[in-house]
């Protein structure tokens, strides 16, 4: 457990402020005809109040499955294989379905990628807002509406009464996402998960939504788990960054650690791939394809695409090495005895 906690990012610097949520060795698999798909493999991280942890990775690397696992919203044939999801010391994976349901929306909330599809198109957003409130509190329709309007004003929406009585398609994408955020934060959750909250929005609206998220995150003191593949968003918003590849976190650290002292070749490749300035003016792409998750190659999953792969990279999965403070990486290149996370 000590080893695991350490790996989740608990170090001297932040030992005093206990994390709101700790995820330890979380594994989620899908049993399909092609075999067991290990979508999330032994993922560990911590979320701290008022802080933003960004999870970055390519499509299909397990970001969204990780997020849904925290809410225990994995549908068969998927299942959470093992691990702990500790919210204030309570393991969510041991709760009954009823207990878990009461936590959803109150302690952990989620904002989805596309605010068009995450609203039921046949009800007004107001009705869906009050429904969410009344699912958890014994309040009247009127009280729920008052609370809803108050929350809507907090996400910088104007003309609240009209927004409240609008159907989702009558609002713009940005407005819908603001309403979504308002609903998610209405019950003052300790953890807010935002699964690519700006992907479906255009760039000008994006920055507004991100600013809103950041401000509310600081204001309410909830921990924000931001799932994205947009490193620009990460740089703007995140306090800490976790890089995921093939279901594993390969590197985690503060936003400065990741952007200035990236250790993992994959992280570096990601960072160079967003930098368009190359001598011939083209983009730097990472060669190859992400691995087939039903058939992950032995050793480091990134080794087939890694420009710096050693022989042992293709044979043995790398262990985790602390670079500095809460910055650690899972790469043989960083191997050294004293950096090794004890007991691993």
């Amino acid at each position: 457990m000590v080893k695991n906690l350490k790996r989740s990012g608990l170090t001297k610097e932040n030992i005093n402020c206990a994390p709101v949520m700790e995820v330890v060795d979380l594994s989620t698999s899908f049993l399909t005809a092609a075999g067991e798909i290990k979508a999330v493999r032994e993922v560990s991280f911590s979320l701290f109040a008022g802080q933003v942890l960004a999870v970055v990775g390519e499509s299909g690397c397990g970001k969204s499955v990780t997020a849904r696992s925290l809410l225990r919203l994995i549908d068969p044939p998927g299942y959470i294989k093992n691990g702990w999801v500790l919210l204030n010391g309570v393991n969510l994976l041991n709760l009954t379905e009823g207990e878990m349901r009461r936590l959803r929306g109150t302690e952990i909330s989620m904002v989805f990628q596309d605010p068009m599809t995450s609203f039921d198109p046949v009800y007004t957003v107001g009705r869906q807002f009050t429904e969410a409130l009344m699912a958890h509190e014994k309040i009247s329709q009127q009280e729920a509406k008052q609370q809803a309007l108050q929350m809507l004003s907090k996400v910088s929406l104007q003309d609240l009464e009209r927004v409240f009585n609008s159907y989702p398609f009558q609002l713009s994408g940005g407005m819908r996402q603001r309403v979504m955020i308002a609903i998610a934060l209405a019950m003052k959750p300790k953890v807010l998960i935002a699964d690519e909250p700006t992907t479906a929005l255009d760039v000008t609206v994006q920055s507004g939504i991100l600013a809103e998220l950041k401000r509310l995150n600081k204001e309410t003191g909830s921990a924000l788990l931001l799932i994205t593949h947009d490193l620009g968003v990460v740089a703007e918003l995140a306090d800490r960054v976790a890089i995921m590849y093939a279901g594993r976190i390969v590197e985690i650290g503060s936003v400065y650690d990741i952007f200035d002292h990236a250790q993992h070749p994959y992280t570096r490749a990601l960072l160079t791939s967003i930098n368009p300035i190359q001598e011939d003016g083209g983009l730097t792409a990472i060669p190859g394809q992400p691995p087939d998750m039903a058939n992950v190659p032995p050793g480091c999953p990134f080794s087939p695409r890694c420009p710096e792969a050693l022989r042992q990279c293709r044979q043995k999965e790398p262990e985790q090495y602390i670079i500095a403070g809460e910055h650690w990486v899972s790469c043989w290149r960083a191997e050294s005895e004293e950096r090794k996370i004890s007991g691993a």
């Binding site: 919203l73 989805f112 609203f119 429904e131 969410a132 699912a135 609903i183 998610a184």
Partner: peptide, 8 residues
């Protein structure tokens, strides 16, 4: 999924 995530 959104409704589930809101605890409905």
């Amino acid at each position: 999924l959104a409704a589930l995530a809101a605890g409905t």
